[in-house]
Structures are given as C-alpha cells and as structure tokens.
Write a protein that binds this DNA or RNA. Sequence first.
DNA 1: AATTTCTACAACCGCAATGGT
DNA 2: TACCATTGCGGTTGTAGAAAT
Length: 264
Amino acid sequence: MGRKPCCDKLGVKKGPWTVEEDKKLIDFILTNGQCCWRAVPKLSGLRRCGKSCRLRWTNYLRPDLKRGLLSDDEAQLVIDLHSRLGNRWSKIAARLPGRTDNEIKNHWNTHIKKKLLKMGIDPVTHEPLNKESKPEESSPHAENSADNNITENDGSITNSSEDNSGTTPTVNFSTTDDSSLLDSICNDETLLASLWLDEPALADASWNGATPATETCYSNESSLPSWEDNIAWLLDCQDFGIHDFGFDCLNDNGFNTMNMFTKQ
DNA sequence: AATTTCTACAACCGCAATGGT
DNA sequence: TACCATTGCGGTTGTAGAAAT
C-alpha cells in the first residue's frame, strides 16, 4: 500500500501559476481567509493541489512579503542564524520579517554558500575549510549539540563554550555601519535567546489569513514592511499594470479587508 | 545572430509533525 | 493508543532570462 497522494493527480495542474490563478487565489483568501488548504482549490475553482496553493500564497502572494534580494544585513543575519540553527530555514525565516524560508534557502544556495566558500569557510560547519575537523566538532549546529548554544526544547541558553566566536567565525559581508550593530545583536546570546522564545509571535504569525496579527509587535520596524508598505507595493503593481498582473481581485472587497488591517 | 552555459528562483516531492477522532 | 487527514518543512528540480562564447 503506497502513501496516498496529497491530491488527486488527475486534473490537477502543475507548473508555473498564471495570473488568472493568482487572482483566484488572492481573491479567495482575501474573502475567506486561510482555511483548510485542501479545500481551497475546490472552493476557489482552482485546478491545483491545496499544497500548491499554500506554497504559492506563502512564498509569493502574501502581501507582507518583502521583494528583491536580501540586503547585506539580512544576509549577515542569515549566516549567523544558520551557524546556530543549521538548515532550519523556517526558523531562520522567522527572524527575517517579510522573508520566506524558500527565499532564504534559495539565497543561501545561490549567493551565501558561494561567498563563504570563496572566503574559505565551510558553509555547512562555518569552520575554516583548511582547519582540521574533528568528527565531534565538525558541525557546530549539529542537532542540539553541546556547541549549539540555543536549545530548542526550552529556549534556554547553555553557554557551553565561553566564547562562541571561537567556533563560529563571524563572516561579515556588509560594509555598512549597520552591520556592526547587527553583529552585536547576533552575538548577543541573551537577545537571541529571547528571540527564540518569542518565535511564535514573530514573522511566522505576521500574516495569519484574514486575521491581522495586531498584537504582534516588532521591535525592528526598519526590517518589517508595514501593511501600508505592502498596500503601496500592491498599488505599485497597479501602476505598472496591476490588471495585467492579476490584482483586479483587490476590488472593494479585497482592499476593504486590507484597509481594515492598516487601520488597526 | 545563434548557441551554449550560468544564474536565480518558483515550484514540486516526499517525509515528518501535528491534530482530531 | 492507533489511525487517518492535513499541514509544514527541507531537499531538489525545472525553467526563464542573462551572460558568455
């Protein structure tokens, strides 16, 4: 007995999403919010698997997404978090409001990995490549290893090594002053611990269907696109042809919903 | 100008985790 | 507790556009 497919393969479309499909999905979610994804295709009239709908929404259509390449500061943060968390992209993404795990994963594989290799740093272990690696120490972020200062279970910090910098060289891509601030943030174990504890309230929850996460308070406003920004982005789309882009659905209904969010 | 190679990223797949009964 | 349905995650692939030849 094989595993039951997540969706009925017959009649389920695959491949790139069309403007029409995007429109349908946005329209549906703005009207109904995020409910059970499996039901979304049926109810919205999309010939897609629910999984595909969820992915499309979370990675591309969500209005709170930042667009464009990761900034130097964001890349720096990704590197630092990766050294602590490993390939747990969703956890890393939770620290970067407006960014998705997929986006970060892609950026890591296409940009950061290569930069680290160029700099002679192993992107997996964050150790210098020429350094003789002892088996036990080969992966500073090995699942909850002793070197991993962040313990997932209780969010507590265990300072197993007095100075994290010894095992995790800080790679600095940024030349801006902000980067030093970021460094200090990244190296602040207490802050990171609190970030860890706060996780559910962070970016993961920033867009929770039609229910605005009004209680979510971001300390770093500069890194978080506000709802106003996102509406502005959508309106920008309108400027260069939103109708072609497929946001016709953001009519009275959709924009009223979004405006409601911005007023909170 | 045509072809090949490279790059970036959207999307898919399979498995794990979670929640309901 | 076991089972099933659903969601979430991370690895991988496919493909469009850019750059190089």
